[in-house]
Amino acid sequence: MIFEIAIGDRLRTVGIVRKGGLLHVDLDGRTHIVDARRVSDSIVSMLVQLDGAAGPSRSVDAAFASQQVAGDFDVHLEGKTIPVQIRPAGSFGRQKKAGPGAAASGPQRVTSPMPGKVVRVLVKPGDHVKARQGLVVVEAMKMENELRAARDGRVRDVAVAEGQSVDAGASLLVVE
């Protein structure tokens, strides 16, 4: 089976086949041999022979947490948390030639990441904003959180006013 996996701004193709009791994982032209035991629905114990080395196996305990989008999840291993997007082969390639990092074209719809209250709207329709400039301040969990522009652009469709309560995912404004 072949997957595309995006980690950070790198997109790579991974092939995986079962051979006997082991899994052979092809990554960037190198084959890693994995003895995998599922510990629970979301935890896998792996003994990995990196690059097919005959040497000692690296013991990697991997645990997973699914995100809102199917195929997006956090991989927890060796004390690190690594966000991963995995899709069947070809899913990314058609759309994202340079990988997900290049997805910063097209309008940016700014949404509230959590339920909360809009305490300040820092821009108005027609304003030109720079990347990382503050747009809207939403208060949740006793903290004020400034939502910023992902890139340079012009503000349109400001859908909220100060004092308004918003749900998670609510559209606040658009930067194009």
């Binding site: 980690i7 896998v44 991997a62 966000p83």
Partner: peptide, 28 residues
């Protein structure tokens, strides 16, 4: 600063852990 960044300087992920994460995701 805010802005969506998968990898900030706070949490540098080295190549070997990226490889392991990719392997783990495929195995999972």
């Amino acid at each position: 600063g805010g802005g969506r960044k998968e990898h900030s300087p706070l949490q540098p992920i080295d190549a070997s852990h990226e490889d392991l994460a990719a392997i783990a995701a495929a195995v999972h």
